[in-house]
Structures are given as C-alpha cells and as structure tokens.
C-alpha cells in the first residue's frame, strides 16, 4: 500500500456560486494522527464530505491510499470510516441493528459480523444499550454508536468529525485512550475538534483551514513553539483574536 493515506490536491467545492473550499491541498501519511482545525464554516466538514462521498468535489483530486475517491469511489469507501459531526442515522433502529446494517453494507458476512459487533459494543460500553433504539440514547451514548459504526468494517483511515462534541469528561478520556491505541495499531486518523487541547494532546501534525483555504500546516511542535498553546496560535492565525 502507498505511504500516503490521504492526498488532497487543489480541492475546490462550490455550492452554487459560493465557494466552500478554495484550492485545499494536504496529505496525511499512513499511520499519522492528523488534526484538521478551523472555525465554524471554514470548510472542514465540506472537505471531509468530499473524501467520503457525501459531497462531490467541484475540482481537484482526492486520493485514499493512492486510489482516486471519485473515479474508484467503491474501493476508497471500504478504506474509510466516518464518524460525522451530526447523527445521520435511522433513529428508530437499535444500536445492534445499526451496526449490523453497516457491517453488511461493507460486505461483511453475518457470521463474521457477530463477533465484531460484540467486540465494538464491549469496547464502547454499549452492550447494555444494544437493543435500545438510537432515539432513546443519551447524547454521549449516541456519539459512541457513531464511533462504533465508523469502525465496524475495520477501516484503515478513520475520519472523526468532532467526535467528542457533547461527550462527558469520562468518555472523552476513554475515547482519547482508545484513539491512541488504534493509532498505535496502525490506523490513520483524521480528527477535527473544537477542543484544541485534545488536538494538541493527540495529533502529531495539524492543518488549519480558514475561509476555505489551508492557512497553516505542519508538525504540532511548530504550532506550540515558544511556550504558546495551540489555542493561542489558532486564534492568531484565524484572526479571531485582535
């Protein structure tokens, strides 16, 4: 497999005549824990949607492990797991049903699905909530279901769009530990979050997108040099602080 897990070249996404992403280029190496930051409406989710197939790029190239995500989209879909910012799920389905359906969509046989689902239910402490409808779960439990769903087909690239939004402190810490573990196992992770201390703690490399353009990219050390916190640097770069 190629060294690059994700390669985005000159990505443009227009909504009518309004540009949401304006010539974004960056790449993520295999096994990296990559932070993708930006203020609300900067183009983070649009970029993620172009990678996963929820949006169609207007121009540019998206490659997942060297495979074009537009022309060979079926191959790239198998390699990517997405935990979206919003709960895009059938709210009347139970946790177990959700995981079963998604595993099936990715071509996992029923006999192979069962142990994988049990493992994920256990890992995300969802076993006692497996037969509950999604709509009956608390915000934190819903977020866990989203994460389990993203991982049910064992993707090589995991995209987590604000996975800790609305999650309590305990779960957030559990999640951090879990993400470190799977990253150590070789999974490539792209993380967006408004909790900058989380990104600072977890990610090795960071990109900041603002107004549809990448305004800074590099190793974490470059952002926090001179005793600065990532949050401070972020506010300087995005012009959110005078």
């Amino acid at each position: 497999m190629p060294d690059l897990a994700l390669e985005i070249i000159d990505l443009i996404k227009m909504y009518g005549s309004t540009p949401a992403v304006r010539g974004v280029s960056f790449s993520i190496k295999r096994g990296e824990f990559f932070g993708f930051l930006g203020p609300n409406g900067a183009g983070k989710t649009t970029t993620i949607n172009c990678i996963t197939g929820i949006a169609t790029p207007s121009e540019g190239t998206v490659r997942v492990f060297g495979i074009d995500a537009v022309t060979n989209y079926r191959e790239t879909r198998r390699l990517v797991g997405l935990s979206p910012q919003e709960f895009n799920v059938d709210i009347f389905a139970t946790t177990r049903e959700i995981l079963h359906y998604i595993a099936g969509f990715y071509g996992i046989r029923k006999r192979d699905r069962e142990p994988k689902i049990e493992e994920l239910l256990k890992r995300f402490e969802l076993t006692s909530h497996a037969e509950k409808q999604f709509r009956a779960l608390s915000g934190g439990l819903k977020r866990r279901v989203m994460l389990a769903r993203a991982m049910v087909h064992d993707p090589d690239l995991l995209i987590l769009d604000e996975p800790t939004a609305g999650v309590d402190v305990q779960l957030r810490h559990d999640l951090w530990r879990f993400l470190r573990e799977i990253n150590a196992e070789g999974k490539t992770i792209l993380l967006t979050s408004h909790y900058l201390e989380e990104v600072e703690m977890l990610c090795g490399r960071i990109a900041i997108i603002h107004d549809g353009k990448i305004i800074a990219i590099g190793d974490k050390s470059a952002f926090i040099s001179g005793g600065k916190k990532l949050e401070q640097r972020f506010l300087e770069l995005t012009g959110s602080e005078q």
């Binding site: 929820i54 079926r74 879909r77 997405l82 979206p84 919003e86 895009n88 799920v89 709210i91 969509f105």
Partner: peptide, 17 residues
Amino acid sequence: FQRFARHIEEILVAPFS
C-alpha cells in the same frame, strides 16, 4: 425520509454502485 433525516449518508459512504 432517508434524505430528510440524512441517513442516506450511510448509503453514500458505503461501497455501493
């Protein structure tokens, strides 16, 4: 309803033709 509740996205991100 899948469009309305956005869980059509489950289908879009899956490897379906």
